[in-house]
């Protein structure tokens, strides 16, 4: 496979790899590094790539595994920084700011989800993959994907509602 051919295959989904990596690793820089690493790994496999029937799903799986490994080694090496004291929300903010704020809150809520739910939510609600595709990427049963997804969505809703009622009360 030539470089141009490879780029044609990879370019359409490189952003998806990056977004998944960022969802898992949180930091943009780390996600960029991870994506780069994945793309280079893919490129080094370009000879056998034609035999994969779904390069995109394969790359997503690679990203998932890579990031989870990263996280695991990081947890083993570093103390985890826990933000338990977010700045108190100002109740007098303008409504527009508040709306923007709660959109950001969804991101923060997602950061706290377990990895699997994070990934399922990312792949379904952000990237809009089919359940079968997600099942393939994450190496799960399609029913398990549904269950995880439903749970994740409800959790996000619950936290969001909690957050809103704090604002009112």
């Amino acid at each position: 496979m030539q470089q141009s051919e490879f780029l044609n295959v990879v370019m359409p989904f490189k952003d998806k790899l990056f977004r998944l990596a960022k969802r898992l690793l949180v930091s943009t820089e780390e996600a960029e590094d991870a994506t780069q690493e994945i793309l280079l790994k893919l490129w080094s496999k370009n000879k056998v790539m034609e035999s994969y029937n779904n390069v995109e799903a394969f790359a997503m799986t690679m990203t998932k595994n890579f990031c989870l490994d990263r996280l695991k080694s990081k947890q083993a090496n570093n103390l985890k920084l826990v933000h338990s004291n977010y700045a108190e929300e100002n109740s007098g903010l303008q409504t527009q700011l508040e709306a923007k704020d709660s959109v950001d809150w969804v991101q923060k809520i997602m950061e706290d989800l377990p990895e699997q739910q994070k990934m399922v939510l990312q792949l379904r609600d952000v990237e809009q993959y089919d359940y079968d595709e997600i099942a393939e990427m994450l190496d799960m049963q399609p029913t398990a994907v549904r269950v995880a997804l439903s749970r994740a969505r409800k959790l996000v809703r619950e936290k969001l509602v909690q957050k809103h009622s704090y604002g009112i009360g």
């Binding site: 977004r19 709306a99 959109v103 969804v106 991101q107 609600d125 809703r157 969001l160 809103h164």
Partner: peptide, 12 residues
């Protein structure tokens, strides 16, 4: 109350 969720997914 659901709006932020979907707006966030779109922006993400």
């Amino acid at each position: 109350q659901y709006a932020p969720m979907f707006q966030y997914f779109t922006s993400a």
